[in-house]
Design a binder for these strands. Structure first.
Lengths: 113, 113
DNA sequence: GAATTATATTAGCATTCACTAATATGATTG
DNA sequence: CAATCATATTAGTGAATGCTAATATAATTC
């Protein structure tokens, strides 16, 4: 895999690496939803959700279609759903280790503040 | 899945969402390696690699064992390798879309600067 | 045990990120 | 066409991230 590709790949994966975005993905995993439906689902802030949707779209993870004044978002394809499932399955295996990380209260094991 | 779990899950996935860390994972995918071997492999900075290794370890993605003055790092288990393969497979499907993102030169589709 | 080798940690800095509040766009409805 | 509803965009801010250079730790070798 080329150098550039690895950057793009990292970006793609970064799409999944945020709590709010994971919630959005769970919310639309089985059926497309409008922005307001998602906002309701997550009890979130409309602007915030819109920005995360733009992020997910930019990462190629979700797609959108307009129908009148509504915009429906859904996973790009079935493989994305499958990837989510596998991420979940692998995560469950290591969850305890990760949660037990010294600084789990701040979730910043990667680089200390 | 609980609220906290989702935070931890996001952290776990964030482990994969960096170019250098993806390179490290590729480097040790099939066999354990010492830090210096990885540094050589990536032609990277020792401090930088060490920090990324700590991150990957904190995320539960890799494990380490000491042998004399060397520390060997390897993937935590076979499922991590499998997850990497599936990420790769799904990524290939959407790669062109992601790369074509308006701002692909800076890889920051998520939040505009 | 002094020097060397392997790895980790710290500090500082510039960049990216996620969030909120405010505003803009765009379609719909009365 | 004015008002409303749905969504997107912008600006500003604090926190997290990734990097480098310098220093610390710990095991090894001479």
């Amino acid at each position: 895999m080329g150098k550039f590709s690895l950057d793009v790949k990292a970006k793609f994966i970064r799409g999944f690496s945020d709590k709010t975005r994971l919630q959005i993905l769970e919310s639309i995993k089985y059926r497309e939803k409008t922005v307001s439906q998602i906002v309701d689902d997550l009890k979130g802030n409309q602007s915030n959700i819109s920005q995360h949707l733009a992020c997910l779209k930019g990462c190629g993870i979700i797609v959108s279609r307009q129908e009148g004044k509504y915009i429906y978002y859904s996973l790009r394809n079935a493989e994305i759903a499958q990837l989510l499932d596998i991420m979940e399955a692998v995560f469950v295996q290591v969850e305890e280790e990760v949660a037990a990380c010294e600084r789990n209260d701040e979730l910043d094991c990667c680089q200390k503040p």
